[in-house]
Design a binder for these strands. Structure first.
Lengths: 347, 347
DNA sequence: ATGAAAGCGCTAACAT
DNA sequence: ATGTTAGCGCTTTCAT
């Protein structure tokens, strides 16, 4: 069996030698930078040589020379949450399309481990950071700031953070609740977030405003804190069922995860959806279509947010942009089987 | 506001200057390589200087010099699948603990885009690859081989692949099915994978063997192909319900995702779990605990597999290992609310 | 239009 | 025990 001719990969030098030109010329041609003045003939010869040697640029050398890694970091608090997996999918696509790669860091629950960012950025591994947090974890944000590379906060805005992309949560919540109201519901429960300054408050505000506009009094007993987990959704749903003697006829869980838990709790208590209770939420995903019943939900362009996140981050890095402040609107209400008229149209 | 003294980060040269020694000495001390002969006094002085300047090594330069990137790549076909998110969590932890970072690539469904590996490896971005595939996608495997860096196949073994970590699927399936049999079930359905040479076949074999051992005849009508998605699970479950006049009393979906779908289909058809039908599956995850009813399932150390995957990959890279062939055993059967005795103990 | 040469920050012989 | 030096592969002035 013939030995592989060389252990090391071909470099610019090899290509240059084969093409009979200087390495700098090869670099000019192969770096993709058009409008470099190189004669068409040499250009051809160089491409030909590169192909022949199966030349692949060494990105490490390039990075060292230009002081950029062409890598971006993203840190997520939980991976088994459709929001984050969709963000990652979009971010990865955006990075790939722009010649960057995506480094992932998992922030262990609870740990003072928000130096995940430090780890990524301090050793010069990444040119920029995509930051996500569940709660408005100021620890995480502080860590991101210390990292000294540009970062974009995803899925929320926060005081003192100049770059962020977030949803118009109030508008999304409003769409969901108005749909329920239009169906005739008047006693509508809400499984809420932590009522912090962004997502939680936003959706809560949308819920409350929609009620207000319809002339429905706000009833505190119809609101329970679920947070953003399946488990929290199930617990909050049970709390609502326990605290309200005549049950509400509809529920608006703050998010897909919470809705999943809520639905399970309803099944458990033998409450039929949508016959006994309607359910509408915000954030669509594959799982919403295969649940029983399939969920009525307001679509949020989460993957798009991940994509736009990287793209704007790259612009930030390359200096073509000074600030990122994008509020994304909910796309549309998808009406599926989880919502219907209330059992009786009477209040 | 005072301007930051320097735009560029401190390098070894800066530290050396401050400590009054040569860069090579600083390198010796800071590269962590103990048993380098450096006097305790200079060692102290160097550490002190580094701290004072907040020195952080430039990993790109280091990479270029030693021809290693200290990055590993992982490519996954779907992110919204508990198996893959758990693998990633484990892999990220393992990488971090060993000074590596984890690059993620998402393999777009269907696309001849399995050059995801090529992208990662050919530009010298990673030192090694973690490979996952849903089906035994030979395209993906071929691409991984072409990448010319060591790779470890996760979650399955395959012909011609020398490094892989996989589960003893047959044993896990057997545990689940034997539990059902012990409860008194005799008509046990199976939602299966694609019946390919690894996962699918393995679990199917475990199912069949467990039946055989109990003297229960195999009934082809009780098996439907679900694959590994929620949707597939729901459809396969419906197929079973349609095809079998006296319904089976138990079902063994091949995996957590399929079980989730199956459970939804059962709810939809008004079949109570576990009163009318028991359900046991393989692969535990947070979602299994919060479903209604919570799922009886065989725990699989998936996160551990991700962790062991990187660790063995790193050993492969560093030459301390020639081959990886680990079969992981299911940990234990977790009995939750989804299984019970059959409606009547009669067959 | 192309070549020559310097240097990004680091490590690892090889000296001393 | 520490210093000197070369060079990883690339880009980019500067010269021709």
């Amino acid at each position: 069996m013939p030995r592989t001719p060389s252990v090391t990969r071909p470099t610019l030098i090899d290509v240059a030698a084969l093409a009979g030109v200087d390495v700098s010329t090869v670099s000019r041609v192969l770096s993709g930078n058009l409008n470099q003045r190189v004669s068409e003939e040499t250009r051809q010869r160089i491409h030909q040589s590169a192909r022949q040697l199966d030349y692949q640029p060494n990105i490490t050398a390039r990075s060292l020379r230009v002081s950029r890694t062409f890598s971006l970091g993203i840190a997520v608090p939980q991976l088994d949450n459709p929001v984050f997996s969709q963000i990652i999918v979009g971010a990865e696509r955006g990075a790939r399309e722009h010649g960057y790669s995506l480094l992932i860091a998992h922030i262990e629950e609870g740990a003072a481990d928000s130096d995940a960012y430090a780890r990524l950025a301090s050793t010069n591994r990444v040119d920029g950071l995509l930051v996500t947090t569940l709660d408005d974890n100021s620890v995480v944000l502080k860590a991101a700031k210390k990292a000294k590379v540009p970062f974009v906060l995803l899925n929320r805005s926060a005081q003192g953070v100049r770059n962020s992309i977030y949803f118009d949560s109030a508008a999304a919540a409003r769409m969901a609740v108005e749909h329920l109201i239009k169906l005739g519901h008047r006693r509508i429960a809400h499984l809420s977030g932590q009522l912090n300054p962004s997502t939680g408050i936003g959706r809560f505000a949308g819920y409350r405003d929609a009620l207000l506009d319809a002339g429905i009094a706000y009833d505190q007993n119809l609101v329970a804190v679920s947070g953003y987990t399946i488990k929290g959704g199930a617990e909050a749903m049970r709390e609502i069922l326990t605290k309200n003697k005549p049950l509400p006829t509809a529920v608006f869980p703050i998010t897909l995860s919470a809705a999943t838990g809520a639905l399970m709790a309803l099944h458990q208590h033998g409450i039929r959806v949508p016959e006994d209770m309607s359910l509408a939420t915000v954030h669509d995903g594959p799982i919403a279509q295969v649940m029983y019943p399939p969920l009525t939900t307001v679509q949020m362009p989460v993957e798009q947010m991940g994509y736009d996140g990287v793209v704007s981050l790259i612009e930030l890095i390359q200096g073509g942009r000074k600030r990122v402040d994008m509020k994304m609107s909910p796309s549309q209400l998808i009406i599926r089987g989880s919502t219907a008229h209330p059992p009786s149209r009477r209040d």
